[in-house]
Design a protein around this nucleic acid. Structure first.
Lengths: 352, 352
DNA sequence: AGCGCTTGTGTAATCGTTTACAAGAGGCCA
DNA sequence: TGGCCTCTTGTAAACGATTACACAAGCGCT
């Protein structure tokens, strides 16, 4: 009844060869003769043999899995990146472990496990706000399992990275607003301490100030990339007497939260204020109004990160340590839709 | 330099005990004396020892991982469910492998691997459209690794299941529209062959016909849960001379696609047509207009599925085989927002 | 003193692969 | 015939944990 799953031993017996030969037929077919190879495959078929990965991993001193550390699994931004990563990785024979870094999981004693070679063969990190010392000291994964950053990164940690040109994206967003005639431009930013927040903010500020325009502190609304943050920013915008005619939100979710809240207050976009997002989520195009935003090639990001990790895993530790760490920066483009328009002269000036 | 990672052997040597004792101190602390336990932990600390999971798994004949089969990782509906699953599972010491079943991955020879005990200790299936024979014959996972269905399920396969009350959800949606005075109600359905499609459709039809109202075939627009399907349905709706004043979409994505497309054509919701969705995605509340929809407790679904799997994994194969298979049906509720309103008399009757 | 029980520890087999090494079988050539 | 390759295959030692079993020590009791 509870008959043990067939092992390589059983296959060997059926095929009338040694286990070594079976193993070779599987992993290195060209070294075994045509005839035995056929016999082995027939035996595999007959016994219903499946490789035991734990045994293989133990022997080969690897795990056959990589981990992806994502700041928030529930955020739709990451899902497409993840699916691209898993696609590439499983094509290469790896399993993908997805770990959400949101909760107090960081204190969790089992968390550092991920950083040890014996849990994963590699790491893709999508969360730039992980405690630096966790990545550096605790498990010193750098020397063992290779890791690459994607989307976000950590300044102090020099590792292969694939990102988009955040600064330029922000610049394009602002340029678009300037081109429409806006000169009163506000910003909804990401969380403090995040590299995306700072690079996008800097890009936007550069573009605004570069146009000789002033950017009052009061027009910088800080957020955290979430819908709720957009709602909150809208409330603050609405409460101001002197407010911008356009805002650049550092994420689509914030842009949609912003627009949704405004709508609830009886205002309309882009009539009362123009809004640009960042990310180009699936839904952006279908939002009402369709969202003008910066398109991120999310699939390409995931794919590139996976391939970069694969490449790193193929390197010896010393090559990895002393070689150049590649940094890939993908270009982004603004896609103009319906949430932006020319400024409405009457709307902006309630008081002055 | 490339000094081997410390093994249980090294710890044993440092602590001056046998490997068996170290193992026991770790997995069964109460059987070793206070003194040696302390010595072992000190040695672990000193050597920086980490358990090798492959070795443990090989010996214990388990994998320490479960797999989740999701129809479309990029769909935001699943992300929160996944995060709940991973939370519960990693709390219980399991890794979670997420596999996207969308592409031709089914033909992929490595796919059936998931069904063998030696890849995972259990399976959560979110995809009700997997080929039946894959789950039943190929690897006969039922006897070995336990599996549970969540959200979707497969009629012919009797396994533990956690779902929501789809029929009742659809009924509530229609009841809401009836209550607003609509008598011309259309449906945008999911893909054919999907259990969610049929149950929701049946629930809706029952409610409509139960109210003594007719439901013309032409008012049933078939979709597949995606934004694009909603867009397409909107086009068909718009092209009709005689059309419903309200539609119930079997997913929020379709509802938003529908509304977005209508808006692009110069129509407004709910003035020109009322729309109800299903799912209550994060964004629904922030959509313009805020979406009236059926709320799904996604976190609860994920959590329940994980707990159910955990419970099943604790059972012996025969208990699993001959015991009752639990079915959990979570209640749902309509949340009324701004995408529905009383029918607009002028809008509905172009021709008659 | 001898017996039995409890408690703590060590010995060694085992899980299912991979792979270094050895060795047998031909083939080719001097 | 003997030496030297090349091509296949088998033998057996890892890989790093877990655990059944045995056994030693300590204790209380008769």
């Amino acid at each position: 009844m509870t008959t043990r799953a067939p092992s390589i031993r059983d296959v060997a017996d059926v095929a009338g060869v040694s286990t070594a030969t079976v193993s070779r037929a599987l992993s290195n077919p060209e070294v075994v003769s045509q005839a035995t190879r056929a016999a082995v495959f027939a035996a595999i078929e007959q016994t219903g043999y499946r490789l035991n990965v734990s045994a293989r991993n133990l022997r080969k001193r690897e795990t056959g899995a990589i981990a992806v550390l994502v700041p928030n699994l529930a955020n739709p931004f990451f899902s497409r990146i993840l699916s691209a990563i898993t696609e590439v990785m499983s094509g290469a024979g790896y399993n993908v472990l997805i770990a959400d870094t949101t909760p107090a999981a960081l204190d969790d004693h089992r968390f550092p496990e991920f950083f040890r070679l014996n849990q994963t063969d590699g790491l893709i990190i999508l969360d730039g706000m992980l405690p630096r010392d966790l990545l550096l000291h605790r498990g010193a994964p750098d020397l063992r399992a290779p890791m690459v950053f994607a989307c976000e990164w950590i300044e102090e940690i020099d590792r292969p990275t694939v990102t988009i040109d955040n600064r330029d994206g922000a610049r394009q967003a602002v340029a678009h607003l300037l081109g429409l005639g806006h000169s009163r431009i506000g910003l909804v930013t990401g969380p403090v301490g995040n590299v995306l927040t700072s690079t996008r903010r800097e890009g936007a500020c550069e573009a605004i100030r570069g146009a000789g325009i002033d950017l009052p502190e009061a027009w910088i609304y800080d957020g955290d990339f979430t819908l709720a943050a957009g709602v909150h920013a809208a409330a603050r915008w609405h409460a101001q007497d002197d407010r911008p005619t356009a805002v650049f939100c550092a994420s689509d979710e914030m842009a949609m939260g912003f627009i949704g809240e405004l709508h609830r207050r009886g205002l309309t976009v882009p009539r009362d204020v123009s809004v640009v997002g960042f990310d180009d989520l699936e839904i952006a195009e279908h939002f009402v109004p369709a969202l003008t935003t910066i398109h991120q090639p999310r699939e390409a990001i995931g794919r590139a990160a996976a391939q970069m990790l694969l490449q790193r895993m193929g390197l010896s530790p010393s090559e990895r340590l002393y070689g150049k760490t590649p940094k890939l920066i993908l270009p982004v483009e603004l896609v103009a839709r319906d949430s932006t328009g020319a400024p409405n002269a009457s709307a902006a000036t309630d008081t002055r």
